[in-house]
Amino acid sequence: MPTEQMRHGWRLRRGRVSIPGQVYSVTLVTHGRWPGLADISVARRVIGCLRDMEEMGHSETLAFCLMPDHLHWRFRLGHGDDLSVVVGQLKGRSARHIPLLRWQRGFHDHAVRNDEDLRRLARYIVSNPVRAGLVRRVGEYPHWDAVWL
């Protein structure tokens, strides 16, 4: 008998579509909300994995913000790639490089509609540390980047 969490995860995946060249906004959460992403060496390794995904052609990162226990990532999906596979590759690659890192199963995704303002959405992502009370200004937080600012 599936647990409520398993049923919830299935509902999140139902209707998920992978469109090459589509811009997606994805949120990944560490297992048990482990706050280890706040560690500078851990954060830099995760960011390196994001860059690896781009170098391999699986994604084009438009904005990201690595919070202490989760990642907000806005990217354009590579041609011939599947959204779930790309996110799974990022999770696996980062977990192999960081022994204590484990990600929760599943992820939240949103396909960005053509009429949405990418600059506004990128600013929203990178201002997460301010809204969370970690810093007073975006420039004080070290673990973000955006092409659309």
Rank of each mutant, 00 (worst) to 15 (best):
H70Y: 05
V87G: 12
E55V: 06
T27Q: 12
R7I: 13
M53C: 09
T27D: 08
V85S: 14
R44H: 07
A43G: 02
Q5R: 15
M56Q: 07
S41T: 14
E55Y: 04
A38K: 04
T27Y: 10
D52H: 05
E55G: 03
S18G: 09
Q5V: 14
T3S: 15
A95R: 09
H97D: 15
P68F: 00
V26E: 09
L37D: 01
R76K: 11
R93P: 12
D69K: 02
P99I: 10
K91R: 13
F75M: 12
H70R: 10
V26W: 12
H8S: 15
E55C: 04
A63R: 00
R51Q: 08
G78H: 04
L37I: 03
I47A: 04
M53A: 11
G80Q: 04
G36S: 01
T30H: 06
R45W: 00
H97P: 05
G9W: 15
P68D: 01
D82Y: 13
L12D: 08
H70M: 08
E60D: 05
V46Q: 01
R51C: 01
D69E: 10
H31V: 07
V42M: 00
M56L: 09
D69N: 07
R74F: 14
V46F: 04
V29S: 12
W10A: 15
H79F: 11
V29Q: 10
I19N: 08
S41K: 13
A63L: 04
A95K: 08
P20G: 07
A38N: 03
A43C: 02
C65T: 06
Y24T: 08
M56Y: 06
W10V: 11
W73Y: 09
K91D: 13
V86L: 13
D69W: 00
Q5Y: 13
T61F: 01
D69A: 05
I19H: 09
F75S: 11
H31I: 06
R44V: 03
M67Q: 03
H31S: 13
E54A: 05
H58T: 04
P20E: 02
G48D: 04
R16Q: 14
K91C: 14
E4K: 14
G32D: 06
G9F: 15
H8T: 15
T30G: 05
G9E: 14
H97F: 12
P20L: 02
S94N: 09
V26Y: 09
R11N: 12
H79L: 11
H79V: 14
R51T: 06
V26G: 09
E54S: 01
L83A: 12
G15L: 07
Q5F: 12
M53T: 01
M67T: 03
V17Q: 11
S94T: 10
S41P: 03
S18L: 09
L62Q: 02
D81R: 14
